[in-house]
Design a protein around this nucleic acid. Structure first.
Length: 773
DNA sequence: CAGTGAGCGAGCTTCCGCTTGACTT
């Protein structure tokens, strides 16, 4: 009798696992997350009916809901086993109503780990749906909808269509905008770092070389020179030695956010890629659930881990521990991300799957290993000519502990890098400097965010959830508030003064700096939207907003505040502000006057145009001479572009030469820089070609490349009908005619299609699309 | 994937959190 008991969880993979634990009088099904949501067609909330939410069954859930309805009807008892957090409670509540359940045949159960004991225990301790917690979720949902669906249309009206704003995404953009401006206003300075290289005879007459750094940095070149002059003929001795034992503890097992960070740092994964791989591993039963904010391991997982450590490394390396989460607002409905089978060090599968799995395995095992023990030695070195002190530090690993398995940073992996090996010295030992070098060091601006470091920051601020980190990062890129890219660095000169053999030598070293790899840059639109929101809706995108409303959601969950009262208090002033802002002022274009064009005497502006950032010579109101426009190039921004750079852009389009008796021109259009030849367009390679500098040779190369590509793309053409082509596209072969594309049935070989067959495929598909309409 | 412009004004866009597929022309 499988129909006796119906258990509903959120994830199908979880359902499969649980079914194994429970006897066959239990049928375990999943809801695939939320089954209902606010109506998307309008606000989905009846403002004047005490904020009554208008829930509708999500289109992609209709099938599963029908199935669950049927099963629930036949079952004797329904166990709602969704996650024990706000969202999980709401899912249970929606199920209860949508499936028309009754309190007699419904039980609410919860467990935080998927083990037999945990589940049987949950069944014993069943309860009923917590309405207060459900109401806290409704408040969360309604608030997010109100903010998103009132602010977004305001942006369409004031800035441009299809933009968006929200409690989470707008804060993410704000973080990037603020950091970018910090970087723009950062003034680089330099000072001099002084390093002395000493030699000391070690065991077996081996000479040990080691370095010591001057305790303070010197302000400039002249001061450095004076200092080195003073060091000529100075005598050095050890004035003090300290040895201090230190410990390094392992990091806790992975949460969604820390997994994303480590996979980014060590494997170079984007956050979306990490989640896609983790999802595969989860569905294959290799790892526990990958969307979690908990660092907790179940008792059984911990003892399995302990067994592995004892077997692989011995008891000496075992130190089981419980980690406590420090994350604000963590709901801890699941375990940490861990391997389901601790014995499995690696898995079959593609490279990414294997690498991510091994990372998870190592981190989990290491979390239950002993601390690493180190000894840090500090040698202070004084000299006869000045009171200044040189300091040499070195670290020796006494016991590797968890480091045997999991190095803290990728750099730790290279053994010899671990630096300065110090010689055995005693107090008052004399030391002889081989050379002393003062080299110029520049201060660095605050780092730009990567996808992963932005997630980390959001998590620290308690904004967003494990299930939304990756989608949020995608959203701000899709809206083109932010672009992820590499940017070329620059070269600068570092002055070096070297004292050796009693003479001072001056040299210059070139240093690369400022190279950015896969960093997030706010775009002009991102900055303008952010400024607009900051100006009018600071209270919403303020870093404290989420924290404050979370406190209120907690009060609702405790039954101390009515959720509609809370929403009303928020909505009234908010909506008033939206109305006011909507009425006043005109479109925001981020316009900036750059200066006067020396040729025409007209003003030059930078602003957002219909298709993105542009520069403009002349006024729009000038009826006789319409203004001239030019698009900004990649890497340029409205905020930073200078008059000189702007004027250069007007040199496009320009003719760069003749090829095949026809002019080649270079310009920039709405899709970026291009070259034009015979009325055909060829895009320039992003990040490689500069339209202001491109040569005729390179342009011809691009034209020939594109011609080759087109040739390779054509599988078949017909002389009777030159417009009809069989092409090789991203999704395989297809037929192209009059800018429309048609799918080739799987049964046909594209190489053998005749013209008549093609025409038939086209007419069949035309008929189909007509029918749809 | 193809496209390389700049006041005609239709109808559309959008939030955050739960969870996985379908299959591109």
């Amino acid at each position: 009798m499988k129909e006796e008991n119906l258990v509903i969880v959120e994830s199908p993979a979880k359902a499969k696992t649980i079914e194994k634990f429970l006897g066959n009088e239990y049928l375990v099904k999943s809801s695939f997350g939320h089954i209902r949501d606010l109506d998307k067609k309008n606000l989905g909330i009846e403002i004047n009916n005490n904020y009554k939410p208008n829930y509708i069954i999500s289109p992609d859930k209709k099938k599963i809901v029908e199935e669950l309805k049927k099963l629930a009807k036949d079952a004797r008892m329904i166990w709602l086993a969704t996650d024990e957090d706000r969202e999980g409670e709401a899912i249970a509540w929606h199920l209860y109503h949508v499936l028309s359940l009754t309190s007699e045949k419904t039980r609410r159960i919860v467990f935080h780990e998927i083990t037999k004991d945990a589940i049987l225990n949950a069944i014993k301790n069943h309860r009923f749906i917590d309405t207060n917690l459900v109401n806290a979720q409704q408040a969360r949902r309604v608030l997010d909808r109100l903010v998103g669906f009132e602010l977004s249309p305001l942006l369409w009206k004031k800035i441009k269509p299809a933009l968006s704003a929200g409690r989470v995404q707008s804060v993410a953009v704000k973080l990037l905008a603020e950091r970018e401006r910090e970087i723009n206003s950062f003034k680089t300075s330099s000072n001099f770092k002084v390093i002395a290289t000493f030699t000391k005879p070690g065991q077996d007459d081996k000479i040990i070389k080691f370095q010591a750094e001057l305790e303070k940095r010197l302000a400039d070149m002249e001061i450095s020179r004076t200092f080195l002059e003073k060091m000529k003929g100075a005598e050095f001795k050890v004035s003090d030695i300290t040895r201090k034992p230190t410990k390094k503890s392992p990091l806790p097992p992975f949460t969604t956010s820390t997994l994303q960070q480590e996979a980014s740092r060590r494997l170079g994964f984007s956050v979306a890629q990490t989640m896609a791989v983790a999802q595969r591993l989860y569905e294959a039963g290799k790892i526990s659930y990958m969307r979690t904010d908990s660092v907790n391991l179940s008792d059984s997982a911990r003892s399995a881990t302990a067994k592995v450590i004892s077997e692989l490394f011995g008891k000496k390396y075992l130190h089981t521990r419980n980690y406590k989460t420090k994350t604000k607002g963590a709901q801890e409905a699941h375990e940490a991300i861990r391997p389901t089978n601790s014995d499995l060090q690696t898995i079959q599968g593609n490279v990414s799957d294997r690498k991510l799995y091994e990372l998870i395995w190592k981190r989990t095992i290491a979390s239950q290993m002993t601390d690493a023990e180190l000894e840090k030695t500090t040698i202070r070195i004084s000299n006869s000519k000045s009171p200044d002190i040189f300091i040499a530090t070195g670290e020796v690993l006494k016991f590797e502990g968890f480091l045997r398995l999991y190095k803290e940073s990728p750099e730790d992996d290279s053994e010899e890098e671990s630096g300065n090996l110090l010689p055995p010295v005693g107090k008052n030992d004399k030391l002889f400097p081989e050379k002393i070098e003062a080299s110029e060091k520049y201060t660095a601006h605050p780092p730009r965010y990567t996808e992963a470091s932005l997630v980390k920051k959001l998590e620290e601020m308690g904004i967003g959830r494990p299930s939304t980190y990756a989608p949020t990062i995608s959203t701000i890129q899709n809206r083109q508030y932010v672009i992820k890219e590499d940017r070329a660095g620059d070269v600068r000169k570092c002055k070096i003064l070297t004292l050796s053999q009693n003479t001072i030598h001056e040299s210059v070293k070139e240093e690369n700096y400022g190279f950015e790899k896969a960093k997030l840059f706010p775009t002009d639109i991102g900055l303008i939207v952010n400024d607009f929101l900051e100006q009018h809706f600071d209270s919403i995108i303020n870093y404290n907003f989420t924290a404050t409303v979370e406190e209120e959601f907690d009060l609702i969950a405790e039954g101390r505040v009515d959720w509609t009262t809370m929403i009303d208090k928020f909505y009234r002033p908010f909506h008033k502000k939206v109305d006011e802002t909507s009425k006043t002022g005109e479109k925001i274009k981020g316009e900036r006057l750059l200066g006067i064009d020396p040729e025409s005497g007209k003003p030059v502006y930078a602003k957002i145009g219909r298709y993105g950032p542009i520069v403009q010579i002349g006024d729009i109101r000038d009826q006789e001479n319409k203004p001239k426009f030019a698009s900004l190039l990649k890497g340029q921004s409205l905020e930073k572009i200078s008059l000189e750079e702007a004027l250069k852009l007007f040199r496009l389009p320009r003719i760069i030469g003749i090829y095949e008796n026809s002019e080649i021109t270079v310009g920039t259009g709405r899709y970026g820089p291009y070259i034009k030849h015979f009325n055909k367009y060829y895009s320039l390679k992003k990040g490689v070609d500069d339209p202001l500098k491109i040569t005729l040779e390179r342009a011809i190369e691009l034209i020939e490349d594109k011609r080759k590509d087109i040739k390779n793309k054509i599988i078949k053409s017909f002389s009777d009908s030159p417009d009809l082509l069989i092409l090789n596209g991203k999704y395989g072969p297809y037929i192209s005619l009059d800018k429309k594309n048609y799918k080739i049935p799987k049964s046909k070989n594209p190489n053998e299609l005749t013209l008549d067959e093609c025409k038939q495929i086209i007419s069949v598909s035309e008929r189909k699309t007509k029918k749809k309409k």
